[in-house]
Simulated assay, not measured.
Amino acid sequence: MDRIATTAGLYPLPDDARSRLSDLKGHQKHDLVTGDEPAEVEAAYEDVREEYVTLQTEAGLDRVVEGQARWDDMLAHPLTVHDNVETGGIVRYYDNNNFYRDPIVEGELTFSGDLAADLDAASDLTDGLQAVVPGPYTLSELATDEHYGNDSDFQAAVAEFLAGEVEAFPDAVETVFVLEPSLVTDPPDDGADERASDAIDEVASATDADVVAHTYWGALDEKVHAHLLDADVDAVGYDLVSNHDDNAYNVAEYGTKDDVALGVVDGQNTLVESPDTIRERVEWFDDRVPGGFDAAYLTPNTGLFYLPVNRFEEKLAALGAATEEVPA
């Protein structure tokens, strides 16, 4: 089994960059869209992107993300920067450490190109580029629809929108992590679970890159898991930090894809896992599921935005070290 060190993106801003951005005259970070920022703001983000890429490269990660420095609203970002979306008040989800501004969709979700622009810039800095996008189910659950009229039409529109964004990604993107925590925290009902799988399938079909549908903050309901396996993704992600037993049960009982992503580092806890601990978590999972896998993406279970910068850097280093020398 190949072990691929990577992350789910969503990195914390370095302290100097945070100060620099806040000091720029008239700058309110979450109200700016790629192409609209003043030159000084664009330059600040370019510097952060280069710093993120350097950190990942020096840590020995096998897939390098852009880092999403501009994503103040986390998974809701692709909507909160859209011309036809009004951003509402602060909303918290899952726990008090996760928040975003409510994206209120008031018109058609036309092509934006926001994500592709950041990835184009990152593609000049690294090989092994990995994109990070919110999943269509999660993004539609986090948003408020005032245009499409019902949940199924809205989710379909979000999926079509994301597919268009993904289709515009540069050829340098080798892997796309589609983040779907709401499949766990707010699982779809009967019928809706199949529609969610179809929506993920539409996004995955928009790229020739390998696609990972990464879930976290627990384990999927059995039926939701079964439908997710119908989507044309290359791997499904399992959070071994929040609920290792139920995730291992799902895979042992119902199978999964030839590849998996394993959340083996806590993305929201300052305790830094050792490389040995990371390896032990992978081996524990591998021992409890039949058949083995072609590849396993080793990743934090969540994005890393809420970590102190020093702990974030240490966790990157631990992931890289965990795949350098795998015991025989």
Score class of each variant (00 low, 15 high):
D2A: 12
R3P: 09
A5Y: 05
A8D: 00
P12W: 07
P12M: 09
L13H: 00
D15Q: 08
D15W: 05
R18K: 09
L21G: 00
S22E: 10
S22K: 10
H27V: 15
K29I: 15
H30T: 15
D31G: 12
V33G: 08
V33W: 02
A39W: 10
E40Y: 01
A43L: 02
R49N: 04
V53A: 04
T54V: 14
L55D: 15
T57Y: 02
G60P: 02
D62Y: 06
E66R: 12
P78H: 03
L79D: 06
L79S: 08
T80P: 02
N84A: 09
N84K: 05
R92D: 11
N97W: 15
N98T: 09
F99M: 11
F99V: 12
L109T: 01
G113A: 04
D114M: 10
A116P: 06
A117R: 14
A117D: 08
D118K: 03
A121E: 14
S123I: 06
S123C: 11
L125Q: 09
D127W: 01
D127F: 03
V132T: 05
V133T: 11
Y137L: 00
L139E: 01
L139F: 02
T144D: 07
E146C: 11
G149F: 02
N150Q: 10
D153L: 10
A157K: 04
F161E: 06
G164K: 00
E165T: 01
V166K: 03
E167W: 08
A168L: 11
F177I: 15
E180L: 03
E180V: 02
V184G: 10
V184N: 09
P187W: 05
P188Y: 11
D190N: 13
G191F: 07
A192K: 15
R195W: 12
D198L: 03
A199H: 02
I200Y: 07
I200T: 12
I200A: 13
S205W: 06
T207I: 03
V212T: 02
T215E: 13
W217D: 11
G218F: 03
A219E: 14
E222Y: 12
E222K: 12
G237M: 02
D239Q: 00
L240T: 12
L240Q: 11
L240V: 07
H244C: 14
H244G: 14
D245Q: 14
A248N: 10
A248W: 07
V251H: 10
E253H: 13
Y254V: 04
G255S: 09
G255F: 07
T256G: 08
K257P: 02
D266S: 04
Q268W: 09
N269D: 11
N269E: 06
T270F: 15
T270Y: 15
E280G: 05
V282W: 11
A295L: 04
A295R: 09
A296K: 14
Y297C: 05
Y297F: 13
N301S: 14
N301C: 15
L304Q: 09
L307Y: 01
P308Y: 08
R311Y: 08
E314A: 03
E314P: 00
L319K: 07
G320T: 06
A321R: 10
A321Q: 06
A322G: 01
T323F: 14
A328W: 15
